[in-house]
């Protein structure tokens, strides 16, 4: 979930703040997730599908995986900087399909169609798996998911603060100007092409880190894990949360990732929902319908998303203050 928040923040910088539609986010998640497996994983010679791993320390693997995602973003950024809006959306769509094909071809790295297991994360001898060392906090045993949850939390908070500071500062101003009026931005001194490329680069690095966390959470990745649905899911998150808002991206990510679990929890008590495989509508399917419907409702009735609701509340109070102030 925190992985999703990081990915959503990254996509929102590109789509919400800079106004560049990208459907290629899944590709950068794939680059991050698969590079991490390749860099930090062990080689597997057994079986019909051998793959190689460099066995680097996981932290180094994570940092390098983000770097490689950035590099992939950099390679695509000349296109990303010159195409606008919808055209970039189409171009980046192609990137996802080409990406899956390329990853399947380099099965030494990706494990091919069967995928590969994700190496456990560890930090200075502390591993993020079920034991070693055993850890109890307030008598709750900290197993893999608890540990990963806190790793994700720390990384997500870091990414959130960085994105907020950047977007509140000079770079964010420049990106919003590029979105709102390219000519006005350039006449005010913003190098439009360069800023579009930088937004693309930053967004791909966020996606890379998100991909690493996603891989750690599901434990085994294959190129098909990063299909076009993932890109669409991320777009749904930022639209629901509010385009251009860092907090909104996190809220949207929480909503979209939590919905299937919440519905799963109450599946028995909601008529028409059922466990997967028992016929009827499964809760993961229902969650997809639900956030699809939520996206449509948000676009029609509240185009600024969850963040917009918070902002308009603030605006009302500021207007009141301005009316009372002497002019």
């Amino acid at each position: 979930m925190f992985g999703a928040a990081i990915g959503a923040i990254g996509l929102n910088i590109l789509v919400g703040t800079t106004g560049q539609l990208s459907l290629g986010h899944a590709f950068f998640l794939a680059v991050g997730g698969i590079s991490y497996c390749w860099l930090s994983g062990e080689s597997n010679d057994a079986g019909a599908h051998p793959y190689v791993g460099l066995g680097l320390p996981p932290l180094l693997g994570m940092v390098l995986a983000v770097g490689i995602s950035g590099l992939a973003g950099l390679l695509f950024s000349p296109i990303g900087a010159r195409l606008k809006g919808l055209y970039l959306g189409i171009a980046s769509l192609g990137m996802v399909f080409v990406g899956i094909h390329v990853f399947n071809s380099v099965d030494q790295v990706s494990g091919g169609h069967n995928g590969r297991t994700v190496p456990e994360f560890s930090l200075f001898g502390f591993t993020f798996d079920d034991s070693d060392p055993e850890l109890y906090v307030l008598n709750v045993e900290f197993e893999k998911f608890e540990r990963l949850w806190y790793l994700g939390l720390v990384l997500a908070v870091g990414c959130y603060l960085f994105a907020r500071a950047t977007l509140n500062g000079r770079p964010g101003r420049a990106l919003r100007a590029v979105r709102d009026s390219e000519i006005a931005a350039s006449v005010n001194g913003v190098n439009v092409t360069s800023y579009r490329a930088k937004a693309f680069l930053l967004s791909s690095m966020y996606a890379g880190l998100s991909g690493v966390l996603f891989a750690l959470a599901i434990g085994s990745v294959a190129p098909e894990s990063f299909a076009i649905e993932i890109s669409v899911q991320y777009l749904a998150m930022i639209v629901l949360g509010g385009l251009g808002s860092v907090g909104g991206a996190c809220a949207g990510a929480a909503f979209v990732t939590a919905l299937p679990y919440v519905l799963g929890e109450y599946a028995a008590s909601i008529p028409g929902l059922s466990e997967p495989g028992t016929g009827g509508v499964s809760y993961s399917e229902a969650a997809r319908y639900a956030y699809g419907a939520a996206v449509i409702l948000v676009i029609i009735f509240w185009p600024t998303g969850l963040a917009g609701i918070a902002r308009s509340l603030k605006l009302v109070s500021m207007r009141r203050a301005a009316r009372n102030a002497p002019t």
Binding site: T166, P171, R176, D180, G189
Partner: peptide, 27 residues
């Protein structure tokens, strides 16, 4: 100008070339 941004932010855009901070230093 950008209608959703504050007046101050809109004017600050004019300072773009007189300021130096980038993604990393601002972030």
């Amino acid at each position: 100008a950008s209608p959703n941004e504050s007046v101050e932010e809109n004017i600050m855009l004019g300072r773009h070339l007189l300021t130096r901070s980038g993604f990393v230093s601002a972030g």
